[in-house]
Design a binder for these strands. Structure first.
Lengths: 212, 212, 212, 212
DNA sequence: TATGAATGAGTATTCATTCAT
DNA sequence: GATGAATGAATACTCATTCAT
């Protein structure tokens, strides 16, 4: 009984793993349920015993991916104080599943509503960590004061742009690996509170001299 | 003969217009060739007399859209000196075809290779104008020195992020109309050469005092 | 153009004919759209160019059958005065399509709503003619006074019972041919105004002697 | 052992009960073996341990229903002398399982051969009682002389017509309850030996005065 | 040039039945 | 005896593309 239940769970995981892998390689639109079944080494009908519809399967893949990414990011980012470290954690988290992540952002609008919601929920975990670290650095004058949504969306937009247009920017298999650090440095320089020629931050100067 | 050729050209334009309109409304994936023919008031088969395959039609729509956008942007941006004015021209150009433009960036990865290339070519027109204006402002110390690709991609990424996730940011029909100005101001503040408490730009100061 | 339209109409008729024939032979439930296409010598997809769904095809078969039966019955029955002649016309009409008619009454409850309505509409044509003839004979005291619905439903029930249970009653291919006359005579004897030993109908006697 | 065998029998009954209930509600065609198992609270596979195929299960449901109806009718009808009482017993018997009975007559032609035979066997029990009572009343001149098969089939046809077309005749849940008495009275009036104006039956008159 | 009927290769989903545990 | 995961054949419906007229 326990054995059967374990086998069933294993099959479910196999379907999810196979589907995620095929989605990453060929995209959500191009992958068929029959293709997933064949790649997973199971019968076509069995997929529907686990996921009533193709959309349900996609939603389940998305939900699992969202949880995985969320918890991984949480593990990597929670102990980090600096915004740079948090963003590095973000890059690393995405980098571990770069292809699938890229398919999500490239085809998000075509996915079932439930899947879109799961993906958005995952983004809110990212933004939470980013805001926390950013708040401290804004306070200490390291970065400019920027509204939260613009801060996150600028970073996400930059990252997603490079990911979805990977062919324009890299021949390698990973955008994160080849360009991540450069994007991070660039982003930080954009939002940095600029220092004057004495090496003091404008913010600190302003504080020292009053609102000036 | 001339009449026939004019008639043929008119049909071709009708197909392109109708297809563009349907693509804008329902997306590239959801629109069928039969649907285009019906909406255009022509026979289904005629589409294939003008465009051998569906992919060819999509490529043609994209090419035409790219040219239209490129020339419109050129008209609006060429006389502009300031980066702000160029970016406003960009926003205006997109705003005139926001839905179709958004479909392109949301489904670009699923379009035929030729279409993707046409879209990229259009982007290079934008970047050309942006670089020209940015170069001047970098020179005058108005904006930070930023590598061209990062400058453009940050702007495009920001804009595209808001366009593709429109549901999260606006209930209205136009993201550009409701948020364009805010995005523009935000972007300019990010790349602005920050001034110190004396109101002089760090850049100019640096120039004045040497590399310090 | 006219040629094409004629060809299309011919295809539509071929589909309807083939479907009706297969339905008659194997029943509505057992016949597949692929089977119809194969039997009609056309591609599977073409069926759906003419009838959007299987239910629509069944409804069209039913509608056509109803019209055919209604007009045929009308032709045969309208000149008839006697109830016997009208019922004979009914038998003959059914007899010309006995198998399909039998499938209808045997599987009616499983057919799409539109088909059921078409079949009921056909029955009302039958009842119209039956009522007309019966009214005269009731007036003249040839048959008993019976409420219209009971009159028709008794006849239809009797006939349908023998048709749907044909295996119990005949080994031949036609219930109507082998048993129709017997059922007709039986039905008429049931509803006949019985005459007394003087050869006068009870009805006429009652009129002569008052309500007595 | 005994315990195990009792348990097995109980499961078998549970399957039959559940199947009968679902068949009554949704029809034979629409009910799946998985649906029966779920409603019965047993595993899907267990059904096939008791009934090798779905057809076997349907046959078993039919056999049991036939025996139940037959014995119930027997109990209600055996002590009855009058045809009216026997027919009332029939109506009552059907009325106790009207929905399932109606599914049987509406889908009989689609059921496995064994099931059809069981149903026919049940009908012969009904006809047996009907013939017995009718014979007496024919003898006494209360009803017309009618051949047995026509007598029964007229009654069954009438009843089944109203049951299978229930939607046309009643909005209530029971055709028997709302229309049974009316159908019974109508049927008896059809087969009644009509009396003349002296209140004597034609039959008795004929006997008294000779063949006339 | 234009038509639109016809094709045929998919594609998700269903369900009775099997079988290892 | 009982479980329920797994099978696999079947089925309605879609759509880009072709081609005779």
């Amino acid at each position: 009984m326990n054995d059967r239940s374990a086998r069933k769970a294993a099959t479910r995981v196999a379907i999810l793993d196979t589907a995620a892998s095929l989605f990453a390689d060929r995209g959500f639109i191009a992958v068929t349920t029959a293709g997933i079944a064949e790649a997973a080494g199971i019968s076509h009908g069995l997929i529907f015993a686990h996921f009533p519809t193709r959309d349900d399967l996609i939603a389940a893949v998305t939900a699992r991916f969202g949880l995985l990414m969320g918890s991984r990011l949480h593990d990597l980012a929670e102990a980090q104080e600096s915004l740079r470290a948090v963003l590095q954690a973000h890059l690393r988290t995405i980098g571990e599943h770069e292809l699938l992540y890229t398919r999500f952002i490239a085809e998000l609008g075509l996915l079932p509503a439930a899947a879109q919601e799961h993906f958005v929920a995952m983004q809110s975990v990212v933004s939470h960590h980013l805001f926390r670290a950013a708040a401290g650095e804004m306070q200490s004058g390291i970065i400019m004061p920027i509204e939260n949504d613009l801060l996150f969306n600028t970073w996400a937009g930059l990252l997603h742009y490079y990911l979805t247009n990977r062919r324009l920017f890299t021949t390698g298999s990973s955008v994160i690996a080849s360009l991540g650090e450069r994007l991070l440095t660039h982003f930080l320089s954009l939002i940095a509170q600029k220092e004057d020629h004495h090496g003091r931050s404008v913010h600190r100067l302003r504080n020292a001299y009053g609102k000036g």
